[in-house]
Design a binder for these strands. Structure first.
Lengths: 348, 348
DNA sequence: GGGCTTTTTGGTAGCGCTACCAAAAGCAAG
DNA sequence: CTTGCTTTTGGTAGCGCTACCAAAAAGCCC
């Protein structure tokens, strides 16, 4: 038995905070607090007899471990900050969904942060979330402020950079080869016989991954000897309405275009719906291809040709990579090319 | 001067964890640790001279506060768990977006959890996130396990229940009156002269909010003396494809229908796109109304009549309510009816 | 300048848990 | 029954920060 509590503690220090603590459970089960801790965290290191007593006490008292205290003591909480540019862009959400589901199943929680495509906000966000002693971090893209890279590298815990593929990465990397994806669609349009092809995007000043796809697109067209730098953009967030606007703008500027390569399916959908309204026939009057693989694409008329990216799976893989490292397993590989798939449908 | 460090501490206890601590900053600035704490957390309680010295030391050392330690000492972290049923449903995401943006601007972080519509998962999720000593909690709906309600009530910190409106709520409530929203669309369809009206939904066994809308719909139709219990559902997740399927099913079963009330815009969009394909004219052959107000609706042909709900704003309001309480301001009101707006467009 | 309040600073003692080590218990073999 | 091992249990000492109170410094009035 413990000695007669040397520190009588008086009233509890904090407000009405009368939560059940590990000491209460220990007393109830007649064991030492550390044994309770072990029974909960590493059950196989405790005899089944005591484990049963502890489990019993836990349920009867309704004990919920204070993860903050545990995190402080063991210098790590089961939290994974996930930092994305925006929560209004479906792509990121689907990736977050994959991450969240995988991590939650493994007993980790996702701490959500968004940067609005601003690297300085990213830096301060990372600084602040590192204050939660997370087990690892998932962040978007490979471009970061130097101080962010520096801090994460010296931090020494697993970091996954998602969405795009390349070098150098901080630690691990799961993503898509954007230039090749852009090239893929451009090649497809060429193969189909189109020769006057424009790239349409929005917000490309901020979204350098769309710029990379344009770059891949441009190179393929240039190599084929056709006009390669037809680019229509506007600085507004991506939306159906934005797609409609760039589409009309492109048509007005270059009525001779025979194919359009949209930066993403949302834009393409806005354009197709507007084309439907105007009686423009696709692909006869003009062909349309795009990037993402949103399910909407297969319900439009015409169905949309797109370079599909497994977004949910990207999240799952990123989370798995992180978990591998957290659970001490040798990381099978620090880089995963999640790939893409050309889905040729009616619109081309 | 502090006395000559009574506990030499030897090597640091944890792994290579050589982060800068508040003590380092204090030493650098020549003040006591508690003064550093105050300079950072309650700057107006420290003279400007010392505050400047501390700020200087903080930047020169690259100090990042350990929020876990702070959280343990002050029994609260600036974290707000947000628990939603699913991250694959756009509605919840838009609400989370509003919450996240508002909270992040106020210096709080969102901890994301999803329950997959399972109340038991909700209970265990809440139990576990309370372990992070969050400042408050936002959760979805008003139906929870008794133990969840009990725990949150005795917990004594702000809790907001979102999406739906009603009593009793645990603490605060921001949402939409689902039965009235359903009734609103039903009334609109009646006003337009339709009389053979069906309600189409999916996953209504899990989504009781859709059931509530159907209930409102049913009552209005019954009061008008028209057939009121035409309901077509299937137990699959909501999607364009699901909308297409229920739509075709309803048409096959009751070719005489003159209006369809969809449980949400995704289903309606799937149906409209399929109707486009089949050459079914709307609203002449059949009218369609729905619920949500997704932007896609205004780009379809015909444009979609819908009961629009300000989802992002709902998130913002929920977060604001929470912040009011956290910052000690008297909560203006514990219940906010975020309202809805009938947007009558071409499809009816 | 003395006595008073108000503001600013610091010392101490934990928050609830786990790392670390030491002690105790169990067990196999000699 | 002892020796030498492994397994199970417990004591101690913090993790890095802030609540609480006490002490010091600064105003302020007469």
């Amino acid at each position: 038995m413990a000695k007669e509590k040397p520190s009588p503690r008086g009233r509890r220090r904090h407000h009405g905070d009368n939560r059940v603590t590990i000491d209460d459970v220990a007393k109830e089960a007649g064991v030492a607090p550390i044994t309770v801790s072990r029974a909960l965290n590493t059950p196989d290191k405790v005899s089944s007899k005591l484990r049963a007593r502890v489990d019993q006490a836990v349920t009867s008292l309704g004990y919920v471990p204070n993860l903050i205290a545990g995190g402080l003591a063991s210098a790590g909480t089961r939290v994974i900050p996930v930092v994305v540019p925006s929560l209004s862009i479906l792509t990121f959400i689907e990736v977050v969904h994959g991450i969240q589901q995988t991590l939650e199943d493994a007993g980790y929680q996702v701490l959500l942060g968004s940067t609005d495509f601003d690297l300085d906000r990213e830096t301060s966000l990372i600084d602040s979330v590192l204050g939660y002693s997370p087990s690892g971090v998932i962040l978007t893209g490979l471009k970061h402020n130097d101080s962010t890279v520096q801090r994460l590298k010296t931090w020494g815990r697993p970091v996954v950079e998602i969405m795009e593929l390349g070098l150098p990465c901080i630690d691990m990397n799961v993503g898509v080869d954007n230039p090749r994806a852009g090239a893929c669609m451009a090649q497809h349009l060429l193969d189909r016989g189109y020769r006057r092809i424009a790239f349409l995007g929005v917000g490309m000043a901020r979204d350098y991954r769309a710029r990379q796809r344009f770059e891949g697109h441009r190179e393929v067209l240039a190599a084929a000897g056709v006009e390669s730098d037809l680019l229509f953009t506007s600085e507004e967030p991506s939306s159906y309405a934005a797609g409609r606007r760039v589409f009309l703008e492109a048509l007005a500027a270059r009525p001779d275009l025979d194919a359009l390569h949209f930066a993403n399916d949302n834009l393409a959908a806005g354009a197709i719906l507007e084309a439907n309204r105007q009686g423009i026939r696709m692909p006869d009057d003009i062909a349309m291809g795009s990037y993402l693989g949103l399910s909407l694409g297969e319900h439009l008329s015409p169905t949309l040709t797109t370079v599909s990216v497994p977004r949910f799976e990207m999240g799952v893989e990123a989370a798995k990579l992180l978990l591998e490292r957290l659970e001490g397993r040798p990381p099978s590989q620090p880089r995963i090319d999640i790939g893409y798939r050309l889905i040729a449908r009616e619109s081309t």
